[in-house]
Design a protein around this nucleic acid. Structure first.
Lengths: 231, 231
DNA sequence: TGTACATCAGTGAACGCGCGTTCACTGATGTAC
DNA sequence: TGTACATCAGTGAACGCGCGTTCACTGATGTAC
């Protein structure tokens, strides 16, 4: 019977979700290295081996958490972008920057799993690539649309990128279509600048030095927007 | 006897060094979460409890590694700076950027220990603060000296930092004396931009996207130098 | 609609491993008179 | 210079813990005729 078949499958889907939820909570308190299948099973009220019906190994559970994390961040970024007038490209850039920072502050260990030091011995499989690009596509779209609208005006204070950058620029244009190499290089600068700042705040490099990171973050993201040529 | 007293102390110092050397090697292959006192003791040919004569706990060994790491990076940065003509501030900035990247690529796990996700449950003690600032002081000095020499000319493309940034700027001026708030904000931008790019390269965000990170790194660091106002 | 069979979820025991840390101890090295 | 004592380094056993993963199994749920 189809209905009962989906009944079993529904239970399975729900338990899978419950496992990742618990795992995510453990991640939030103990970090990735402390995530343990046995602890999750214990909290599920299951015997530890039962988890293997749902995830064939610890690494697969980690992968699920990584994918969920990228999707959650991606969605936050998409929503921040969607909340701005389409033509306000500078505002959209600032909004997505703020969204990244806020999501990171709200989920520090999850953020660390995505953008911190790699978990030793863990090799991310192909399925993480798509979700990992979700937020990146939003930045790319903002820049590409600004360029298309003719409002992108990068200040002429940098030397042009070297010719050898052209090859990587081709690949990156998949994310920011239609823009010249110089804009691509600036986009990477903005992208790494955004995450560099979030990393430093989250990983403690600002301790004892910058007590009001929010203010500086907003200002520096605005400045990076100007570097990009956003108005 | 003084001579024999230092004999015992010399052995102690050497064994301490040997322990941290082995630990550093383990760090390089297994990462921080996999660093184990027992494994180090085993390789020393000691019983595991003997390590406690040298380090009262695993965390203290980690602390020693962190301090050594900051010092090694700091020294690399200092030497890169020292290898440039004093008046070539832009060249000095590029040189220290390259030194950071090269050190990080040569010691990825050590770099991750310093600038990656915090080790869960580990709280860095006060003694790490000094070494942690060693490289920072070099960037600060370059900018301060360029400013003092009157060659710092930051492009007027950014809005001024908000008034509320003034408080943090006071603190940061301990590292970059004599410069206005706007330059301080730009310095943080360059600083986070530098490490943001190294982080992304090392932690895998450039995978499948940027195949020639060295070229883009050099170009973007030059661009960040221009943001700072270096010629 | 009822029955025979196949699939699946969860159990419980076990394997084999590693870890940090404590403690009472022996024997060597250094110190003071 | 020689002896009594104190300090220190290293031993070996133990405590108490946790982990990932495998495997033969039971009993429930679903499927096909």
């Amino acid at each position: 019977m189809n209905a009962s078949r989906t009944a079993r499958e529904r239970v399975r889907a729900e338990l899978t979700r419950e496992i990742t939820d618990i795992a995510r909570r453990h991640l939030a308190t103990d970090g990735a290295p402390g995530l343990s299948l046995r602890a999750v099973a214990r909290e599920m009220g299951m015997v530890s081996s039962a988890i293997y019906r749902y995830f064939p190994s610890r690494d697969d559970l980690l992968t699920a958490l990584i994918i969920d994390g990228y999707n959650a961040l991606g969605e936050a970024v998409e929503q921040a972008d969607a909340g701005c007038p389409r033509a306000d490209h500078a505002g959209r850039w600032r909004a997505v920057c703020r969204a990244v920072r806020e999501w990171a502050l709200a989920h520090p260990h999850e953020y660390a799993l995505l953008y911190g030091s790699p978990v030793p011995g863990y090799q991310a499989p192909q399925d993480t690539i798509g979700p990992a690009m979700r937020d990146t596509l939003v930045y790319g779209r903002i820049i590409a649309e600004a360029h298309e609208a003719g409002v992108l005006d990068p200040p002429a204070v940098f030397p042009p990128p070297p010719a050898s950058f052209a090859e990587d620029a081709v690949r990156l244009r998949a994310v920011i279509p239609g823009v010249p190499d110089d804009v691509i290089a600036r986009a990477v600068m903005a992208w790494t600048g955004l995450f560099g700042m979030v990393n430093f705040e989250l990983f403690g490099q600002f301790n004892n030095a910058i007590l009001d990171p929010a203010t500086l973050f907003d200002h520096n993201m605005t400045a990076l927007g100007r570097v990009l040529g956003l108005p």
